[in-house]
Amino acid sequence: MIDSLVEDPLPYSGFLFLLGLLVGSFLNVVIHRLPKMIEAEFRHECATLNLGDDAPPPARASYNLVVPRSACPHCGHQITALENIPIVSYLVLRGRCRGCDARISPRYPLVELLTALLSATVAWMFGPSLAGLAAVVLTWALIALIFIDADTYLLPDSITLPLLWLGLLINLGDAGFTSLTSAVVGAVAGYLSLWTVYWAFKLLTGKEGMGYGDFKLLAALGAWFGWQVLPVIILLSSLAGAVIGIALVLAAKRGFGKPMPFGPYLGIAGWLTLLCGPQLQQLLFPTF
């Protein structure tokens, strides 16, 4: 069976496509709930500090990635297992809640389909290997970060920091994407490069041009692929941000003065680097 997977990547890619549908369904939960969990934790800490040392801490309702069960935000109808089958349930329900007929956002099945397609693509490129498994995990993490940042302007430490350490670990041996030295330098250079831009912009304008989560995400990508590809990632993400930002302004969906998250473009550039980093580096910086 293993030999057949190595010789023919189609069954492995098909398996990762189906697994990606399930993971995409879970990523929808992460994208929706993780920012709310961060906010709830912050509010709980503030409330605890305001009570003083002798007062007991306030009670907290259970809210995490597992409980409470997913429910319709309009009528509270709890989503059953049959209503939670990736893509299929959305099509059967025709994009409507079974309890109140409220419209379900099409982004849920799109995230599931996107996760499945990207997972299958990575499986096809890398095959059943340690690097391939790591690449799939990186893909899932980037999808979650892209949508969370697009919604809330947050790049949670609970994803970016483990991603950074995982990048260093995967490059410990010969199965990684670069040498360990290059990965360590990439993590440091990735963080410091955007940190420098942040402070230069703040000193010149008095405003914050980006968040610290962007530093950590670029540091994580540097840990995965090495310092050599950082110029490629920064250039691609900047170009993507400029093009999409101008398109949103022209479509009257965003004004010039409204903040725009940079994390989604870093995530897109990072995933493209995963697939074809050396080719992009040769194309954009042939003498670097």
Rank of each mutant, 00 (worst) to 15 (best):
L221K: 03
L248I: 03
H32C: 11
G95W: 08
P68L: 02
G76R: 03
D149Y: 14
A134Y: 04
L280D: 10
Q78H: 15
A102G: 06
M125K: 06
A40R: 14
A71P: 08
D53Q: 13
L27A: 05
I31C: 07
L130W: 05
P86Y: 03
D149H: 14
Y191G: 12
P56L: 12
L154F: 11
G190K: 03
K253R: 15
A81Y: 12
G245A: 05
V229P: 07
V30H: 08
S237K: 14
P56D: 15
S13R: 03
M1W: 05
I246C: 04
G257C: 04
L194A: 00
Y90F: 15
P109Y: 08
V188Y: 07
P56S: 14
L180N: 00
W124H: 13
L192V: 14
D8N: 15
P73F: 08
P73R: 09
L230T: 06
I143A: 12
I148H: 10
L266M: 12
I143Q: 10
S62Q: 14
R254T: 01
S89L: 09
I31Y: 01
G277V: 09
A240T: 11
L82T: 03
L218G: 07
F201N: 02
F285S: 04
A183M: 03
S182W: 00
A81M: 10
T139A: 08
S62T: 13
P86V: 07
I246W: 03
F42W: 11
Y265P: 04
T205F: 05
L284Y: 13
A55I: 10
T80I: 10
Q228R: 01
Q228F: 14
L155T: 00
G95K: 06
P109R: 00
S105I: 11
N84S: 13
L155A: 09
Y63M: 05
G226I: 00
D214R: 15
G167K: 02
G20S: 12
V184M: 04
L142Y: 13
L51Q: 12
L192K: 06
Q281H: 15
L169Y: 10
L284V: 13
P68V: 07
W165T: 01
P128H: 04
L51P: 13
A123C: 01
E41Y: 05
G24W: 12
I2T: 00
A187T: 03
P128Q: 02
L10F: 07
D8I: 00
T273P: 01
V111K: 11
S158M: 08
L164V: 11
G190S: 13
R96Y: 12
A187L: 09
T48N: 07
P68H: 11
P35V: 05
L5I: 01
T48G: 12
L235R: 09
H74K: 15
C46M: 14
G20T: 12
A55K: 15
T196V: 14
S182Y: 01
P57M: 08
G127S: 02
G127H: 00
E7A: 15
C100I: 03
F147P: 09
Y12P: 00
Y108C: 05
L133C: 04
P58R: 04
S237F: 12
S25T: 01
A183L: 06
R60T: 04
C72E: 10
D3A: 08
T160K: 05
P57Y: 13
L19E: 05
V88A: 11
A223E: 05
A220S: 15
F262G: 02
V111D: 07
M260Y: 09
L221W: 08
I170F: 07
M260G: 09
W224I: 02
